[in-house]
Amino acid sequence: MTLNNEEISRYSRHLTLPEVGMGGQLKLKEAKILMVGAGGLGSPLGMYLGAVGIGKLGIVDFDVVDHTNLHRQIAHAASDEGRPKVHSLRDTILAGNSNIEIDVHNTRLDRENVMELFEQYDVIADGSDNFETRYLINDAAYFTKKPLVSASIFRFHGQITIFDPDSGGPCYRCLYSEPPPAALVPS
């Protein structure tokens, strides 16, 4: 794999950093990242991963852009209202960097599709919005041996960590073995 001249110029500030360099930039170009959620977390996450030159980006979400999303889900514009979030996010990312490949999955992640999907990627990024999906992602990432970069939000409070049991680290269930009972989840 190599960089073309446009890419060399685009990523030149990276290429001159010892922490990245040509080797690092090629690693980014070879990388395949699957992100779950194209909302508040997925917007900046996807835009950043796209800009930085991740080779292949998968985006899973089944929601459509709603008026009440616009104030925080910055990848979606007012003109995207009613469109699938995966399409809106894809277009925003590609507008900034058309060198990357984006696979959209306009569907709810479930037991039937998760394993096959995860197999195609190197790293999973969880920006989902419910416990069912978070435990599904954790278990599937464990079974497919993929590192999971997990972020979640409640009001003004965020939690971020990496689960990588394959390299000896903890998983989501090590941290929280069970979700809260539904009656205790604030509406």
Partner: peptide, 22 residues
């Protein structure tokens, strides 16, 4: 914006994993 910051940290960690650095 709250989720913005958290999503960017998440992106940073993904990138570090790929670069195998830091």
């Amino acid at each position: 914006m709250l989720p913005g910051v958290v999503g960017l940290i998440q992106a940073t960690e993904v990138i570090k994993l790929i670069l195998d650095n830091g």
